[in-house]
Each structure stands twice: as structure tokens, then as C-alpha cells.
Design a protein around this nucleic acid. Structure first.
Length: 593
RNA sequence: GCACCCGUAGUUCAACUGGAUAGAAUAUCUGACUUCGGAUCAGAGGGUUGGGGGUUCGAAUCCCUCCGGGUGUACCA
């Protein structure tokens, strides 16, 4: 933030002038003054005591005097222990607001950083519909992409669809055997749900077979490996890989259903992609890199023909890259796609948004890339997020406790509808606009709930509580926004911000300006630390501060037109920041609710 | 066993990356102009930051150790 930079520099000068010794600017500890103390900016003087050779209070006092005298923006100061609290003049804040008001793209970095970043997220499997965990993933990825763009980077949003493998064959097999030719059209089911139904069907029969085998004396492990269904699924996978036309055409058909279903979910959720990769196209990538690595001695071959990478330097176990029969494993593909992407797009960075259960996988992947000598290996980052748990514990598909993405989105929207109709403020709104509004509110609640928690932390999703629209929630922020819009609308065009405005700011007014002023640095911080949660918590704080102001001070009822104009402008600018921040989170804000 | 992550009011989450008296929400209790939108606002109670050591002017934050929870540790993806 500019103010901090300026004060830091002034303090640096002050130290040199007052104590006769230069100080490194890194040693000047600056922060926002806590609410329960007077002032706006606080210098922590402890790190300066070595230079001042005086007690903290005296050091602070001397610096405060100097700053008050020589810096225009510092209008006063006070000292509490080792903390020098500076009061910044009201005219400075009024000026700041004026500049922000004029800046159409306030907070958003408009000059290109020259960096290209790929953010990969979503990564669904085509054997079943999306669930709550995917929603967290999608929102994190989408929001992160927005935040990185707001930091001036070029961002490529990528998705990779895991559309091949044994799990798909399971659904296919079950559908062929028990599906009676069902289609999304014939059943009215969404394609991904229909296919998911057969994935469950497969498992039901598979479990029954296992139980049978076990009761006939097999161990569980044996049973799992030798049940007829699993053998048949494996057989099907081989046929798929061999390009068997019947298998491939079933696969194509069922995949198209699923993908259509995913598109609908993505559309409802409001996320999108610039580049969609399909594992069926990429799964063979990487073999030639392994061969090359073998030549160069990065990898080694065992007697049975399997290829391995030694990762002692990274303190990891050796990793298999090619099976003894020459086929590739999952990580082989990841090596291939990483190389391809960095080469195709000249990426400066790639971020994988993937759950923390794959921490080890990415550690290994990045270590291998490093060993292969790629300079960009260190530019890969695994944004690892925690699992979403339910009050009953983990989501388990076998126990039917998985929260389906489409279901929860529907539920949130219908709750928004119910609540809105109860409040009865929408009588003059046309039906189609209302439906749109319920979506904005319901999804706003859901998305905000998922994003306000620090990504790496595991989080709890309580279906009862998350439906709450009061308190620290998306709808609370949306509501604050609508009140601002209503206010601005009522004020009409007959107000303008008076630049020469000079009166004592109310602490509530100043509080809002200070928060708004922080917005660009919050965006930067969120970009640096890859955390949408920072934006989420910031915008909540801003809305809360505004509500407090709105409740306590008159605006349109004022006789003093100058002050009224100032406050309307303040409200409008707050509204703009709220909207901008919410959009970074992928959340819409309505004008009325 | 080993590796990584997490542990903060009853509950769900913050704490500007080492700064002041650890903040919100929720739940509970109390209050708010005859209302610029009450999906709001104000107030009260609620904490040995899992325990114990250390590092320093200063620790929820860094280090060690123990306890509790999660995730991983495949010729699966």
C-alpha cells in the first residue's frame, strides 16, 4: 500500500535524522493500528532500539515528534509502550477516496505482468457425478484464476477429464449388463447421474461376488482380485486400449452423456475452462521422455525391464515409471503433460488444484521433473486443499453419504427461494428475474461457505448450518450490496463528490475508507499466497463495517448536501469494491433481494 | 512404523506471516430512531490458543517433545 510505503520511507528518514544512524527499511515494522487504539498507522519501535539506544517510549516519542512536524499526512501521534500510533489527516483520507472513486478498475492490476500461469482444476472422473469435494476444488481453481488475472497475469484455466481406465469400464460393464438400453433421454436422468447409477450397480454386484468367494474360503484380498466382474472389467479395459470398436463406441456414447452432464453442472456453478484435456488423449504421453531420461542416466532399468527413478536427494522412495511389460503408470502421463504444457504455452508457472490426498504424488512428480533437468520444475505448485467432511464424518460412496453437487446446489437455491418469498420483498419482480435471483443467492451462500476457509485446512460442511443466510455468509454480503444500490438509486444523479470537502471525518467513515484503500494489497496478498479466503474474509469485513456506518449515520436524511454527497459517494464506492471482490470469488451480487 | 498437514470461545472460522488486551459468526441473554431496506445494528457472557519445555524486548505463529485428528506411504488412478 502506498501509504505504508510512504510512512516507512519517512520513518527511515526520521531515524537517520533523529538518531544519526541509517536504518534498513526492512527493519521498519509497520501495521494498521488496532481498533482499540487511537491512530491509523502503527510503527513498532522495538526493532529500532538498537539504533536509538533509548527506551521504547522515548524512541517512539522522538520519532513521533519528527514525523508530525515534517510529514504532512501525519496530523498527530500517540505512544503506547513500544508502539508509535500515527494519526493520518482526514484530508489525506478524503483524497484517497476521491482517487479511488475516479479509478474504474480500482484494485485490479491493469498492466500485464508478462507472466503466463496455468491453473488446472476440477479433474473429474467420468464414471460418476460431481460431489461436494469437486465444488470446493472448482471454486478454488476458478477464484484463484480470477485473482491471478487481477494481479496482472495471463491465466489459462485448464481441466483434465479422467475419461479412461478401470473405473469407466466398471460403469460400462454394468450398463451393458443391466442397463436395458437406458439413456438420459429415456430415463430423464442427467447423463452423469445415469452413468453413476451403473457405477454403483457394478459395485453392488461386485461386493456380492466378493462375499460369496469369501464364504467359500477365499481371503478378502483374493476375492477382490478374482471376482468374475473385476476380471471382466479388466478384460474390457484391454479391449478399449486395443481399440476394439464395440467397446470404444459404448465408451464414446456413455462419455458423451457424462460430459454433457458435467457441462450443465459447470454452467450452474459458473465456472469455465480455456483448455480441456482428455486423459484418453494424453495417457500415452511421457513414454518418450522416460526413454530419453533413461539414455541420459536420470532413470534406471531393473532386470525385469521396469524403469525407475531414484529420488534419494529428495528423500523419497524410488518411483516406478514404466511397468515391466512396458506400459506406463499414472505419473508417466503427468510427466508428459507437464512437459507439453510448458513447451506449448511457455508457461511461467503451473498450479495444480488437487486435494491433499495427492501431496505425495506431486512431491514425487516435481522431484522427477527436477531430476530430468527442467529449469521450470520448480515453477510447478500443488495447491493442496483439505477434505470436506460432514458432521457424520467422511463422505463415503459405499455408505451413500456423498453429497452430490447438483443436489446441494438445488437445495441451496430452493432455500433461497423459500426464504425470499417469506420475506416478501420481491412483489414487483418478474418471475424469471426472481428465479435468477434465487440462484444468485443460493449459490452465493454455497460458494462463499466453501471459499472462506483457508484452502489447506480441512473443513466441515454441515448441511443444516451452511444453509444459514445470516452472519458470516455470502447472502449477508449480497444484502449489504443491495442496500447500497437502493440508496444510490434513491439519491439519483444529483450528488457529486466534493473534492474540496474538508470536515472532520466520522470514525465510521474513516474506517470504511481505510478498508477500501486496502483492497489492492489484499488482492496482491491473495495472489501471492494463492488464497481466495483472504478476499472472502476481507469483503465480509468491509460489508460489516459498511452496515455499521449505514445503521449509525444518516445519509439521505441529511440537510447538509455536501456531507450527504460525500456519504453517497462513499457508499457507492464501497458497493463497487464489494462487487469486484465477490466477482473474484466467482459470486454474483444482485441489485435487489 | 515413517512422512506431510491440522489442533484457537459449546460449534464453525479469523488473526495483515513474530507485535499491543487473541477477533468474527452461530447458539444463549438484553437492547435499537415510529426505519436512507430488520437477510440489519448495538451490548453481555463465553479462551491457560491440545499439554509441557525452549528461542527473545514480544509466540496462536519459529524450534524440541508428548497427546489427539486427518492424509499418504501401489507395477491403482
Amino acid at each position: 500500500m502506498q501509504l505504508f510505503e510512504d510512512i516507512k520511507k519517512s520513518t527511515q528518514d526520521a531515524v537517520e535524522t533523529v538518531f544519526g544512524k541509517p536504518v534498513d527499511i526492512e527493519n521498519i515494522a509497520i501495521q494498521h493500528t488496532r481498533k482499540d487504539f487511537d491512530g491509523d498507522v502503527t510503527i513498532v519501535v522495538f526493532p529500532l532500539l538498537k539504533i536509538s539506544k533509548k527506551p521504547p517510549e522515548e524512541t517512539a516519542e522522538m520519532l513521533g515528534n519528527y514525523l508530525k512536524e515534517s510529514v504532512d499526512t501525519v496530523s498527530d501521534f500517540n505512544v503506547v509502550k513500544g508502539f508509535l500510533n500515527l494519526v493520518i489527516s482526514d484530508s489525506y483520507w478524503v483524497n484517497v477516496l476521491g482517487k479511488i472513486t475516479e479509478n474504474v478498475s480500482f484494485g485490479i492490476e491493469t498492466t500485464n505482468s508478462g507472466k503466463t500461469i496455468m491453473v488446472e482444476y476440477s479433474q473429474p472422473n467420468t464414471n460418476k457425478p460431481l460431489h461436494l469435494g469437486h465444488l470446493r476444488n472448482n471454486m478454488l481453481g476458478y477464484s484463484l484464476a480470477n485473482i491471478l488475472m487481477a494481479n496482472g497475469h495471463k491465466v489459462i484455466k485448464a481441466n483434465i477429464i479422467n475419461d479412461r481406465g478401470i473405473h469407466i469400464c466398471k460403469s460400462m460393464l454394468a450398463w451393458l449388463r443391466w442397463g436395458k438400453g437406458e439413456t438420459p433421454e429415456s430415463t430423464g436422468l442427467k447423463g452423469d447421474h445415469l452413468v453413476g447409477k451403473y457405477y454403483v450397480e457394478f459395485n453392488t454386484h461386485y461386493q456380492a461376488e466378493i462375499k460369496d468367494l469369501v464364504s467359500n474360503g477365499a481371503t478378502l484380498e483374493e476375492a477382490e482380485k478374482t471376482a468374475p466382474l473385476i476380471l471382466e472389467a479388466q478384460e474390457m479395459l484391454k479391449k478399449w486400449e486395443a481399440g476394439d470398436s464395440g467397446t470404444v463406441s459404448t465408451w464414446k456414447e456413455m462419455n458423451s452423456w457424462v460430459l454433457k452432464g458435467f457441462d450443465a453442472s459447470y454452467k450452474t456453478l459458473g465456472v469455465d475452462f480455456d483448455e480441456i484435456y482428455y486423459e484418453s488423449n494424453t495417457y500415452l504421453l511421457g513414454k518418450e521422455h522416460v526413454a530419453k531420461g533413461l539414455d541420459k542416466g536420470y532413470f534406471y532399468k531393473k532386470d525385469d525391464g521396469s524403469v525407475w527413478c531414484d529420488l534419494k536427494e529428495a528423500k523419497l522412495d524410488p518411483k516406478l515409471l514404466l511397468r515391466s511389460d512396458g506400459t506406463s503408470v499414472y505419473i508417466t502421463q503427468d510427466i508428459g503433460t507437464a512437459v507439453q504444457r510448458f513447451e506449448d504455452y511457455k508457461l511461467d508457472r503451473q498450479i495444480y488444484v488437487v486435494g491433499n490426498e495427492q501431496n505425495h504424488h506431486f512431491q514425487v512428480l516435481f522431484a522427477i521433473l527436477k531430476k530430468m533437468g527442467y529449469a521450470w520444475a520448480a515453477s510447478n505448485y500443488h495447491l493442496s486443499y483439505g477434505m470436506v467432511e460432514l458432521p457424520s464424518g467422511k463422505m463415503k460412496s459405499r455408505e451413500g453419504t456423498v453429497v452430490d453437487a447438483d443436489d446441494i446446489m438445488d437445495e441451496m437455491v430452493s432455500t433461497a427461494k423459500k426464504l425470499s418469498l417469506e420475506l416478501g420483498k420481491l412483489d414487483d419482480m418478474p418471475e424469471d428475474e426472481r428465479e435468477e435471483l434465487f440462484k444468485i443467492i443460493g449459490l452465493g451462500a454455497l460458494k462463499y461457505y466453501l471459499l472462506k476457509v483457508e484452502p489447506k485446512k480441512q473443513m466441515l460442511f454441515d448441511p443444516e448450518e451452511s444453509i444459514d443466510f445470516n452472519g458470516h455468509t455470502g447472502p449477508f454480503i449480497q444484502y449489504s450490496y443491495t442496500r447500497i444500490q437502493s440508496l444510490v438509486k434513491k439519491a439519483g444523479a444529483n450528488y457529486n463528490n466534493d473534492n474540496g470537502y474538508g470536515y472532520d471525518l466520522d470514525p465510521l467513515e474513516k474506517g470504511i475508507i481505510k478498508l477500501i484503500n486496502q483492497y489492492p494489497s489484499i488482492i496482491k496478498e491473495a495472489g501471492d499466497s494463492l488464497s481466495p479466503a483472504l478476499i472472502a474474509n476481507y469483503v465480509y469485513e468491509l460489508a460489516k463495517e459498511f452496515n455499521h456506518f449505514y445503521q449509525s449515520l444518516p445519509i439521505l436524511k441529511l440537510d447538509d448536501e455536501q456531507i450527504a454527497a460525500f456519504r453517497i459517494n462513499l457508499a457507492e464506492t464501497t458497493g463497487r469494491v464489494i462487487k469486484s471482490a465477490m466477482n473474484l470469488l466467482g459470486i454474483d451480487v444482485p441489485d435487489q433481494m
